[in-house]
């Protein structure tokens, strides 16, 4: 590119080149870009429902829905020990499994019981979140029914026995002989407590 001696701006039609925010072109562009910025702030929030929808669609967070079981064949040649673990997070409840562990054949439908007691003097709503050890065993542990599928609201002093019905997938790798199923109850605040 070459530069001439600067000359006054050639007449109309050329790019405006003064630093004046009152120039309509500058103001229009400012408004457009400001709208983009505000829209992107909204986009950040739009990612929340979008994320939840993706998780639903891909089954990534199906912890509150029964698993679908197809064509289970009981594998009586091996048995897997299922151990149970119960935790409360800052809740005035007592929570225990009515059996410490159980031995199951992969493919066999099994029911176990858990018990919660609300030791406080007011109604409390909780939500249980399961986790598995070893972690990858979770995908082989199919729950047909579980108290963790919905929130549990307990009246003051109420005791509740709750079932979990499950099937261990026969495709569970051979080296896994023990699965620990752990539940943690979290208090759901501001919902259903009154």
């Amino acid at each position: 590119m070459s530069v001439d001696q600067p000359s006054p701006r050639p007449g109309s039609g050329s790019t405006p080149a003064t630093a004046d925010h009152r120039l309509p072109g500058n103001r229009r562009l400012f408004m457009k870009l400001a709208v983009v910025a505000v829209a992107m702030f909204g986009f950040g929030y739009a990612m929340v429902p979008f994320y939840n929808a993706i998780c639903r669609a891909t089954g990534l967070r199906d912890i509150d829905r029964p698993d679908r079981i197809v064509n289970t064949q009981v594998d009586a040649t091996r048995s897997v020990r299922i151990e149970f673990d119960t935790n409360l997070r800052n809740m005035p409840w007592k929570f225990r499994a009515l059996q410490e562990s159980t031995d199951v054949h992969p493919g066999a439908v099994t029911q176990v019981l858990f018990e919660v007691v609300n030791e406080s003097d007011h109604a409390v709503t909780g939500q249980a979140i399961p986790s598995y050890g070893p972690q990858f065993a979770g995908q082989y542990f199919h729950k047909l029914d579980c108290f963790c599928f919905k929130r549990q609201t307990l009246a003051p002093g109420e005791t509740r026995k709750m079932p979990v019905v499950f099937v261990v997938d026969p495709k569970l790798p051979q080296q896994v002989s023990t699965i620990t199923l752990s539940y943690t109850f979290f208090e759901v605040e501001g919902n259903g407590n009154g």
Binding site: V36, A37, M40, F41, Y45, V48, Q127, F186
Partner: peptide, 28 residues
């Protein structure tokens, strides 16, 4: 312009989770 507002949104969600009872990131 495209991403700074998204960060602003993310930390605002943190702020409301901390003080205003929302549960964007709060598993409980």
């Amino acid at each position: 312009i495209a991403v700074m507002p998204v960060l602003a949104g993310a930390v605002t969600m943190l702020l409301t989770d901390r003080h205003f009872g929302t549960s964007f990131f709060n598993a409980a």
